[in-house]
Amino acid sequence: MKITQIQTTVEDHHIAKLAAIAIALHMVEAVIPSPIPGVKPGLANIVTLYVLYEYGFAATAWVSILRVFASSLLLGQFLSPTFALSLSGAVLSLAALWLAQHLPKKWFGPITLSILAAFAHIGGQLLLVRLWLIPHAGVAYLIPVFATAALGFGLMNGIITAKLISNKQKKSV
């Protein structure tokens, strides 16, 4: 019997490890009750951002999309509206990161990227809610609440990421 073995690279292992951390954070977040439905800290984005700085954009996209798929399978939400929301948020925030990574590094750090990604994330989700789930102008009423959360949690995640990166740099020096 022939056993097919998939050849994996060191890069693949890194991506798998980091995606696993992101999934774990996603799971932790799923059991934390939120005062407002839909408002979550998005801790998994810390991993996404960290990967962007350490491994580049392609790895980031992998980690982010793997996280969305694997988490939804684990939570039993695969192909449900929750999954669609998660995916649309992830795709839009990846797009934002793809654009934002070209900003001059001297002026813009992880905090900028984190806030931009958070806004893109919530923007993608609200767009999907408005177009598909609740096609009603009343959705606009919720935008300020979600925008505030995006700013606050984006800032928090950005600071954590900045700290992680600077710790890593200190260790390697």
């Binding site: 900003l103 001059p104 001297k106 002026w107 813009f108 750090g109 992880p110 905090i111 900028t112 806030i115 931009l116 806004f119 300020p144 925008a147 505030t148 700013l151 984006g154 800032l155 950005g158 600071i159 900045a162 700290k163 600077s166």
Partner: peptide
């Protein structure tokens, strides 16, 4: 120490935007 000038600027724009 983690804030670069651009970060502060974006944060200010974000607060105003909200």
């Amino acid at each position: 120490a983690y804030f670069l000038p651009g970060d502060v600027m974006l944060l200010a724009i974000g607060v105003l935007g909200v």
